Simulated scan of single mutants.
Amino acid sequence: MGEMPRRMAIAVATALLTALLVAPLVFNAQAIPPEQPVKRGGTLRVAVLDDVKSLNPMYAMSVWDWAVLGMIYEGLVATDPDTLEPIPWIAEGWEMYGGDPTHWVWYIRSGIKWHDGEELDAYDVAFTYNFFRFGYFARYLSYAEYVKDVWVEPPNKVHVVLYKTYAPFVRYLSAAPLLPQHIWGPAFVEGYDLAEHDAPRYYYESLYHTKDPWGRNPQIWKVRHEKLSGMFMPDPTMTGCGPFKWGMRVPGQYISFEAFEDYHMTTVVGGGKREYMRPNVDRVLFVIITNPAAQLLALQRGEVDMINWPLLPSDAEAVKGYPNIKLQITDD
């Protein structure tokens, strides 16, 4: 069947990766060339192969969990869809402090809002880093292993000091979802003081009566693991700062998101400035269809607008002639 079907078969997998890492680049109005007419409003129905297993950012693991969480939460950096290099996002810039590869400074963008209307600031970023490293969550153990200290230099600088040089620091440690301090602090950290942006600290060994994994015995917050462990949605409002707000979930059927009206992001991609505003669509619906053949049939019938998973070469050939179906093609 030649090279074209093979390239089409992997195309949607690449689109999914882009959607997970930089959702605004996929759903945002500015991703469309200006000479094309922009269609606004309505619902985008996306077929997905499975339901989520968890919506807890501390424990979520599956690609479907993060497909949902990636619509709602954002990190300090995003990924350039062409080069896969980190680009400014919530952080408008970063640098090594005095050239020291174990001391980084992040410059936090102003004007970013959480979904509840509160403004995101440097203290939210510092809280997130500390929560990850003090909580010793399996998914974020690298934070506890490498991050030695975090503090804010008002108004917008966050200092992060590492125990030792960590080459993928910018790409890996900075892409994790940011958490709203005003929600997660009081709910999940014992004695958290929003005015002081801190909580009482205890030596690891006295708190857990065992040695920490690296034998350092640091002073840490008492994270309320009992309120987090096993919880499907620890924050029932799912408050993030991404382009879409949490809507609702009907298990085994669909998950919905609503466009965040106050979404606004400016970054640099490929040397050029890009501005992202409120998404074009009003609503996104993840329709759960666990059979690939049934997904394709739903697309052909107009019951969904997009399949976010690779097509078999034979299926790609079968839909090439449909006038209302566009295949996303990429090189392997």
Rank of each mutant, 00 (worst) to 15 (best):
M1Y: 05
T210F: 05
G247F: 07
K39R: 15
M61R: 15
M71W: 02
M4W: 14
I10E: 09
K157C: 06
C241Q: 00
F169T: 12
E95S: 14
A293T: 07
A122P: 10
E95P: 07
Y172D: 15
V161Y: 06
R40H: 10
R283C: 05
G272V: 02
V269W: 03
K39W: 06
W246N: 10
Y322F: 12
R133V: 00
P86Y: 12
P88I: 02
Y123L: 01
R249N: 12
R224N: 07
R249A: 11
L76M: 14
A23P: 10
M96D: 13
G242N: 10
E261T: 10
L44T: 04
D262Q: 13
T239N: 11
D116T: 06
Q219N: 08
D331P: 00
N217T: 11
Y204W: 12
M4P: 04
G41K: 04
E95T: 07
A31Y: 00
M71K: 09
V284W: 00
W106G: 01
G242W: 07
P218E: 06
A126C: 08
W221D: 05
D331A: 04
V68R: 06
R274Q: 01
L84H: 13
I112F: 03
L55F: 07
P34I: 01
V150F: 07
M58Q: 12
D198P: 14
W214N: 09
L16T: 13
P292G: 03
K39I: 09
R274C: 00
D65A: 05
R7V: 01
E74D: 11
T128D: 03
L162N: 13
L173W: 01
W106E: 03
M233W: 03
Y146L: 05
P323H: 00
D80F: 02
A78F: 01
V268R: 14
P88W: 02
P155W: 01
F137R: 07
I289M: 07
P310Q: 11
W94P: 13
N28V: 00
Y204S: 09
S110Y: 02
D100C: 08
V152T: 02
L311E: 06
H197R: 15
N28S: 11
A144L: 04
T83K: 05
L162R: 13
M96V: 02
E119F: 03
E92L: 05
E258T: 14
F257T: 04
E85Y: 13
I108C: 05
R6A: 12
T267V: 05
E153F: 00
T128S: 14
N308F: 08
P86C: 11
T18N: 13
V46G: 06
V223F: 03
N291Y: 08
E226T: 01
F27G: 00
V77R: 11
S110G: 04
H225K: 15
N291S: 15
V161D: 12
V38K: 15
L327V: 13
A91G: 15
L84Q: 14
D193Q: 15
P200E: 04
D80K: 10
R139Q: 07
V250D: 14
V22D: 10
P57L: 10
D235W: 09
R249W: 13
F132N: 05
A60H: 12
S54T: 14
A60V: 08
I72K: 02
A91E: 11
D305V: 02
R224D: 11
N28L: 08
N280C: 01
A318E: 04
L299E: 03
V12I: 02
V269L: 13
